[in-house]
């Protein structure tokens, strides 16, 4: 047996090499971002770049800062999450508790899966031609585009992720605890509130973190809907830009210092999403180990 293993050392080596491609790609991404953003950081200084509100592209007076886009990213993500939480919790309870295993839950599940499958450029198109006119006709803003519309569509896009993951954690709550609570006279809502939610809380929390990670980096939909302006957003009806949308919008015609600044914004986005996803995954892994 051991003989055979040593003969096949070559296959193991092949596995090892291909596994090595993943770290190679990851470090390649990080390296490309760091190297290309080096100019911007050395020109403006790391903290100045983060805190500057300026995005001035006039050739003789270039000055770039990340603050408007960091604010835009945080605002759209926060609003999308606020809208997403009640919807995805409902879907999760519908599929994971109230109608678990029923046909109707399969139907909702399929709908949510299909929502997750729609390409982001189609969400953007729909938001642009359907939702934006609604905002305009309500008199909320003159051009319709802005943080509000972008967040609403973003919320629809991230609900499937948060909902299907949360539903899994709600399903994991053992039947014996629920029955035990019912046997003491609890109503269904009381069982959900005092038994299911506390027991599934870390899992549900992590699913929102992962959905947030998606919202932070979503590019096309936001670029099509946010209005693409480079000043600090003052309200939710304002136009703006997120880290992802400014890169998508300006990368094509950028060079020199501007290009480097866009890479710097991408680096920031990479770090933010990496940390967010890492936190989410760590909570999930802890949860599944303690089970």
């Amino acid at each position: 047996m051991y003989n055979i293993f040593s003969k096949n050392q070559s296959f193991k080596t092949l596995l090892n090499i291909s596994a090595g491609i993943i770290p190679l790609v990851c470090s390649g991404i990080l390296l490309a971002l760091v190297l290309n953003s080096f100019n911007a950081f050395s020109e403006f200084g790391f903290f100045n770049f983060l805190s500057s509100k300026e995005w001035n592209q006039s050739p003789n007076n270039e000055s770039y800062g990340a603050l408007p886009f960091i604010s835009g990213t945080l605002l759209t993500t926060a609003l999308a999450l606020v809208l997403c939480i009640p919807l995805s919790l409902s879907v999760a309870l519908f599929n994971g508790e109230y109608y678990k295993g029923k046909t109707i839950s399969n139907v909702l599940n399929t709908i949510v899966d299909l929502l997750a499958g729609i390409p982001s450029v189609i969400y953007g198109l729909w938001g642009f031609y359907v939702l934006r006119p609604v905002v305009m006709s309500l008199g909320l803003s003159s051009q319709g585009s802005g943080i509000l519309v972008a967040s609403v569509v973003l919320a629809i896009m991230i609900v499937p992720y948060a909902a299907s993951l949360s539903a899994e954690f709600i399903k994991l709550v053992p039947k014996e605890y629920k029955e035990s609570a019912y046997s003491m006279g609890a109503t269904r809502f009381e069982v959900i509130r005092y038994v299911i939610f506390p027991m599934a809380s870390s899992g549900i929390f992590s699913s929102f973190i992962l959905a947030m990670g998606r919202a932070l980096g979503e590019t096309m939909t936001v670029t099509m809907l946010i209005g693409n302006t480079n000043q600090m957003p003052q309200s939710l009806l304002d136009t703006g830009n997120t880290l992802a949308s400014i890169v998508a919008n300006q990368f094509g015609e950028a060079d020199g210092l501007k290009l480097s600044s866009l890479f710097a914004l991408a680096l920031l986005l990479f770090i933010i999403t990496a940390i967010t996803n890492l936190i989410g995954k760590i909570i999930i892994k802890k949860k599944s180990i303690s089970k």
Partner: peptide, 24 residues
């Protein structure tokens, strides 16, 4: 029930009081 099932999210004291909590 057959298997001991104190609520894992509650302390010993909270488990004793669970019936009250669950009935509001």
């Amino acid at each position: 029930f057959q298997r001991p099932n104190p609520f894992p999210n509650m302390s010993i004291a909270e488990n004793v009081l669970a019936g009250y909590t669950l009935n509001g």
